[in-house]
């Protein structure tokens, strides 16, 4: 169920963020469904391959997409079991996200362009800094809730109880920073710009075209959805009784998240590249503080 929701709605989520940004800028903005149109348009186009690329370049978008879809199979709807669920499955989820990133980085290096190599190095550096925060957060949660699968962690994180609830707030903030950084949202990277020296993610996909680019765009929408729903699962305390109510609550929380991201992107400027690692280390430190808090 979570898989179907994600596959259908993740481009809409991006569309909502763009719409909210347009609202803040006083523009009408592109239609909500623009990302679907983009995907359809790109799928109908032909592909251009540079003569310096190899099979790695051609495979990478589809490996990335496969990794994202597999990760979605592991990701549960908060409060419900997912397709694949076992103790420690969040490690596999993060490993799949790493596979996704690895294949995109490989493709970027495969083009032989120095510009893309630079983007790849930045992407790897920042995810290297973001991953400890992500892992530490989920270690803290599984320790505090004594549940070791995502299903158990997300089913009711607020049962962590009493003074330890504070750790949850720290983790929520930490995960939000990681969410923005990993999906190259605005304080860290601007998803709209091209040919800017500070961009991170976009620079890696400059050489992809046609269906390959569609695969990559769709993958990044899915990635945003994955991290977004992890954040929503941890930060929203409401678990309704019935299944449909829960789905509604979940979607409402996702809309809320889109509004938050849209507002943040409207009111913040992009930070200097050197400060990105700074913010990510703050995320790691917050997760570490949460760990100490929960042990105590």
């Amino acid at each position: 169920m979570s898989l179907i929701l994600a596959l259908l709605l993740s481009p809409l989520f991006l569309g909502m963020i763009v719409k909210i940004k347009a609202f803040f800028a006083g523009r009408k903005g592109q239609p909500l469904l623009q990302f679907y149109y983009d995907l359809v348009k790109l799928l109908q186009k032909g592909v251009v391959y540079s003569s310096s690329t190899t099979v790695v370049f051609r495979l990478s978008p589809w490996i990335a997409l496969a990794a994202a879809v597999t990760a979605l199979c592991i990701l549960p709807l908060p409060g419900y079991s997912s397709w694949i669920s076992f103790p420690g499955d969040f490690f596999v989820l993060f490993a799949l996200l790493a596979v996704l990133r690895f294949s995109l980085v490989c493709a970027a290096l495969d083009t032989g362009s120095s510009f893309e190599g630079m983007g790849a190095s930045r992407e790897v550096l920042f995810s290297f800094l973001a991953e400890p925060a992500l892992l530490l957060s989920f270690l803290v949660l599984s320790f505090g809730l004594e549940g070791y699968s995502l299903h158990e962690i997300l089913s009711n994180p607020f049962s962590i109880g009493g003074g330890k609830l504070v750790a949850l707030y720290f983790i929520s903030v930490s995960l939000f920073i990681v969410l923005l950084a990993e999906n190259s949202r605005i304080p860290f990277d601007d998803p709209n710009t091209h040919l800017e020296l500070t961009m991170i993610h976009e620079v890696m996909v400059l050489d992809h075209s046609g269906p390959d680019l569609a695969g990559i765009l769709y993958t990044s929408a899915l990635k945003l959805w994955i991290l977004g729903s992890l954040w929503v699962g941890i930060s929203s305390p409401w678990r309704g009784g019935s299944f449909y109510l829960d789905v509604l609550v979940f979607l409402g929380s996702m809309i809320f998240l889109a509004v938050i991201i849209g507002i943040i992107e409207s009111i913040l400027a992009r930070v200097r590249l050197i400060r990105v690692s700074h913010a990510l280390s703050l995320a790691t430190v917050l997760a570490g503080v949460a760990l100490l808090w929960i042990i105590g």
Partner: peptide
């Protein structure tokens, strides 16, 4: 620098703990 300071701060927190 601030990044390393933060990580050292985490270490100091663990130490005082």
């Amino acid at each position: 620098g601030p990044t390393v300071s933060l990580l050292i701060g985490l270490f100091l927190l663990a130490l005082s703990y």
